[in-house]
C-alpha cells in the first residue's frame, strides 16, 4: 500500500504544479536578442534591479535575428518587451512585426562596438588595410583577369610590406552577428579597392566578396571569444577576430592590428576614425510600456549619462559611447517614446 500511496501523492503534487496559473501577469521585463549587446544590457539590468523596487529584467542571449523573430511574434505578456540587436532592424522584420499587430517600435541606438583583428603580444602588431584582409581571406580572388581560388599562403604574398608569416585567422562562424558585420565592414569594403579589370560583368555579378576561405587559412573558432583569445596566446602567428571588449579586457596579452593606419583604441573608435565599428541597438514595444511594470524606468536607466555616457559604467565594460549630440537626441527619443518610421 505504501507504493500506491506514493504514486497517488506524486500524481497529486504533479496536478497541483500543472494547474498553477501559467498565465499570471508578468511582473518582470523580458529582453531577448544579440549576444554582442548582452554583456552591456545585463549590466544595466542588474543596476536597475538593485536600485529600484522593480524585479531584475530577464535577458536571453538569442542572437540579433533570433531576438527580432521572438520580438515580432506578437503583443502580450507571452512576448518579449525589448530586443537587443547588433544591427538595425530589417524592412522584412518590421513588416512581420506590423503583421502581428506591433505598430509602434521605439528604436534606441546605444553606442558602438569595434571589431578588432588581434594577435599575440609575442609577435609584432600587424599594419593592415581592408584590401590586404580581403585578399588574405576571400575564398576567390581576382588574378590576371579571372577569379581564382585564393592562392596566397603568407601575408607577404598579399602585400610585400607584410611579414612572411602564414595566413591563419580565427574568427566567428556564419551564424554570428560579428561575422556579418566583419563581412560588411571589411570584406565588402576591401573588394572595392581590388583590381577587377578583365573580369566579365557576368562573373562580377555572381561574385560574393563575403565568402571566406575554406582551405584552413580562416578557422571558424566558434562563438566563444575567450577561446580565440587563448588560442592566440598559444599561437603567435595567428590573428583573431572579435569584439573590442575582449581586447579591452586582455590588453596585456593580445594587441589589436592597425587597420587603415588607425589602431583600435577606445578613443579612435569613439571618434569614428577606426573603420571597423558598428552601431548597437535595442528595440522597445511601445504597447508594453505601462502594461509591464518598469519599462520606462529601465529605459531611463539605460539612457542616463551614468550608464551610456563617456564616463559611464557601460564604457567601463568596453562599449563605445555615441557622440554627445547623438546621445542627447536618442535620450530625448527614449523619453518621448518616439516610434520609428517604417523603412
Amino acid at each position: 500500500m505504501k507504493i500506491k500511496g506514493l504514486i497517488v501523492a506524486g500524481a497529486l503534487a504533479t496536478a497541483t504544479i500543472m494547474s498553477s496559473p501559467a498565465h499570471a501577469n508578468r511582473d518582470y521585463i523580458s529582453i531577448v536578442g544579440s549576444s554582442t549587446v548582452y554583456p552591456f544590457a545585463t549590466v544595466v539590468a542588474e543596476q536597475f534591479g538593485k536600485t529600484t523596487q522593480f524585479k531584475t529584467p530577464k535577458i536571453e542571449s538569442t542572437g540579433s535575428g533570433g531576438g527580432l523573430k521572438l520580438f515580432c511574434a506578437g503583443v502580450g505578456v507571452d512576448h518579449p518587451d525589448i530586443t537587443n540587436a547588433s544591427r538595425a532592424i530589417k524592412k522584412s522584420e518590421q513588416e512581420k512585426c506590423a503583421a502581428n499587430g506591433i505598430k509602434d517600435i521605439v528604436e534606441v541606438k546605444i553606442g558602438y562596438d569595434g571589431i578588432v583583428l588581434a594577435n599575440s603580444k609575442k609577435a609584432d602588431p600587424m599594419q593592415l588595410t581592408r584590401k590586404d584582409i580581403f585578399l588574405a581571406l576571400a575564398k576567390d580572388v581576382p588574378m590576371d583577369g579571372k577569379l581564382v581560388p585564393n592562392p596566397y599562403m603568407t601575408w607577404k604574398d598579399v602585400n610585400s610590406a607584410l611579414p612572411a608569416t602564414k595566413i591563419e585567422v580565427l574568427g566567428p562562424p556564419p551564424t554570428s552577428g560579428t561575422r556579418d558585420a566583419f563581412v560588411e565592414l571589411v570584406m565588402e569594403e576591401g573588394v572595392e579597392e581590388v583590381d577587377m579589370s578583365g573580369i566579365s560583368d557576368e562573373v562580377k555579378e555572381k561574385f560574393e566578396p563575403g565568402a571566406l576561405r575554406e582551405d584552413g587559412a580562416y578557422v571558424e573558432a566558434g562563438e566563444n571569444d575567450n577561446l580565440i583569445v587563448q588560442k592566440l596566446q598559444a599561437n603567435p602567428d595567428a590573428l583573431g577576430i572579435f569584439g573590442f571588449s575582449f581586447l579591452d579586457q586582455n590588453a596585456d596579452v593580445i594587441q589589436g592590428s592597425i587597420i587603415e593606419g588607425e589602431s583600435p583604441t577606445f578613443e579612435n573608435i569613439a571618434a569614428g576614425k577606426y573603420p571597423v565599428s558598428r552601431p548597437l541597438f535595442f528595440y522597445v514595444k511601445k504597447a508594453h510600456v505601462g502594461t509591464i511594470p518598469g519599462i520606462a524606468e529601465y529605459l531611463a536607466e539605460f539612457a542616463s549619462e551614468k550608464a551610456w555616457g563617456p564616463e559611464g559604467y557601460l564604457a567601463d565594460k568596453g562599449m563605445i559611447p555615441m557622440p554627445d549630440a547623438e546621445r542627447k537626441q536618442f535620450a530625448d527619443d527614449v523619453k518621448n517614446l518616439k516610434p520609428m518610421a517604417m523603412k
Partner: peptide
C-alpha cells in the same frame, strides 16, 4: 525554451 538567460533574482 529561453532558460539561457541572465537571471539575478
Amino acid at each position: 525554451i529561453g532558460m539561457v538567460a541572465f537571471i539575478v533574482d
